[in-house]
Design a protein around this nucleic acid. Structure first.
Lengths: 341, 341
DNA sequence: ATTGTCACCGAAAACGTTTTCGAAAAGACC
DNA sequence: GGTCTTTTCGAAAACGTTTTCGGTGACAAT
């Protein structure tokens, strides 16, 4: 039960390997008769080219690598979905690795993918990432590279992002419109650019609306979990019982906040209004339903692959390639947790 | 900025490619002096073997394929997590494809992966799968193959499963213990083995407890969605207002059921008790918290890769390999939705 | 001087494909 | 029959690695 090769087809047909290869790839310099013979035999033997040999010869694997902080995450699994779909449409397969939010792992995985000689890499940084060396190495080796969502502004590569600052600004203004005057912010960890930007958006919205900014009202997540949401909600309720609105870095944490308030019977949205970020599925399912920021995650995956493919093709044809940044639109989804009484 | 090859190292050192290769792979027949020279130079040039060439030569790619119905799914993304982790520990990378519950796509993807010549394939069947030809082709080509969760009993390959029938039996008995006497079942689609098994478990539990089985109380999902849960809940409330317990194929649908009952103010668990399946994260977050069946998804991924690796290694060493089936334990997680008043 | 034993090295084949380039065969034209 | 063009084919190199197997030289023992 050996694998079929060009050689075998050539031998049974009494022609050369070259001609077989050409027939299969529709080269013009092979007669209709021989072409048909080759195609028929290849068909009946269900020949498929040995991709290892093709890779070696063509120096490409039609495979890309994807590194994300974690797969089990509503936002990221949607992005994965978009990337896989778009890649498959274009004849590419996707190898997925997760950094588990660890810089060390992230470095190892970049290394792994480059040694695998994938045709390109798509990546979203881990929260620990404040070191750029491994990323710069990708560029130095001229491996096509796209970052999405959690990016580094210092790296000159293609990017797919949302305007986190603007989105956060809108979210906080939404709270203000609904009547909130003392607004807390549960922010993401210190490193990630988007946590920083969302914080800045929060600050700007307060500023514009003449609400004094109070650093004591800002709580910083370490692991961005449901439990952290509960803990911070408790702190807020105890330290600042007059807070009437909270803008939370992401829905998972916001749901934790709601869970705590439900437990201690603080009424949402009557006493405190809450808005999250990313529109996780569970947000429309809990009580009260969580208002949030809509983030086009699937589309982000599609666009990320699109940019990567552009760069891969440019490289193949030896064009110069100028990195582009695509900024996707967000919107506010108003649900029960910010309803104005 | 060309890639470093054995040849270049050999030339600058004035020795043969063979010796360089041997030095790097710790063959005994190379003197300590030359080995050191090679290792040092390789290090300073940051040489990494061309994996395309290695693949071709060794006939393996250290890459496996994974086909699942969909990535954006709490259960499957957890399995992915387990597989990726375990694979990476063993030096394997994972290509992920999703069938989107379509038999046609599933077939195409099996084809894709085999043509890529992955070292093995792990798979969970789509709901549409009632045709075995593409699976049999995997076995015919002797590609190491493991199925998990949604399996076909007719295919002789390694499997990682839970005892769906027993788990469902226990879930329904849990309802009975809590006082339910008229229990409906929202089941999965007709094809998947585990939907069938869970239905059988439901039936057996009724039987054993002398509750008459009424086919009218069984509702069959097509797409297994949140919305279907809401619809069926409405049907149950209208057609069988005296139903006091519902066993639901999976948490996502069960959450839909709760959502409807919350809307129309039917009290859970006082009027109707509900139990789901799989322990999705959101189940501990909604109101009331959903009782469910714990399914070790991460562990399923780990074990699946383990079995695949066994088979890969057996094949490499030309051992015979006998497929094994691993059955993982499940348990009941009791939360508010089945609380006995 | 012969034989034997080691330690070390390298030539060469092999994996299966793609592509260049030259050559042979066939047909066209006078 | 000779020349020229067109069609069709294949030899061979190349991609970079792994591994077999034989060879060389050094040294010791006889």
């Amino acid at each position: 039960m050996r694998d079929i090769t060009l050689k075998q087809i050539a031998e049974t047909l009494g022609i050369s390997i070259t001609t077989v290869s050409k027939a299969l790839k529709n080269y013009p310099d092979v007669s209709p008769k021989t072409r048909k013979a080759v195609l028929d035999l290849a068909q009946s033997l269900s020949y498929t080219p040995n991709s290892f040999a093709v890779n070696l010869r063509t120096k490409e694997s039609k495979t890309i690598g994807l590194i994300i902080p974690e797969v089990v995450h509503h936002f990221f699994s949607n992005v994965i979905n978009g990337i896989i779909d778009e890649a498959e449409k274009n004849g590419y397969l996707v190898i997925i690795l997760q950094s588990n939010e660890s810089l060390e792992l992230e470095k190892k995985q970049v290394e792994l993918l480059m040694n695998k000689r994938v045709d390109g890499i798509i990546m979203s940084l881990s929260n620990e990432s404040n070191d750029d060396q491994h990323i710069k190495e990708i560029l130095r080796r001229e491996v096509p590279f796209v970052m999405f969502d959690k990016i580094s502004k210092l790296i000159p590569c293609s990017k797919v992002i949302i305007n986190d600052q603007k989105a956060a600004f809108n979210a906080v203004e939404h709270l203000i419109e609904k009547g909130c005057r003392k607004i807390a912010h549960i922010r993401g960890p210190v490193n990630p650019q988007n946590a920083i930007d969302r914080f800045l958006g929060y600050k700007k919205a307060l500023e514009k609306n003449h609400i004094p900014f109070d650093p004591k009202l800002v709580y910083t997540c370490k692991n961005v979990t449901f439990d952290e949401g509960k803990e911070f909600a408790e702190q807020i309720a105890k330290e600042h019982p007059d807070v009437d609105g909270i803008f939370v870095i992401t829905d998972l944490v916001a749901v934790g906040v709601l869970a705590y308030f439900n437990e201690v019977n603080i009424k949402i949205p009557e006493q405190i209004k809450v808005i999250g970020f990313s529109n996780w599925f569970m947000s429309q399912v809990i009580t009260p339903k969580l208002s949030t920021v809509d983030q086009p995650s699937f589309e982000m995956g599609v666009q990320s692959f699109g940019l990567l493919l552009e760069e891969i093709n440019a490289k193949k044809e030896l064009h110069a390639f100028k990195p582009r940044t695509i900024e996707l639109e967000t919107g506010i989804i108003e649900r029960e947790s910010t309803l104005k009484k």
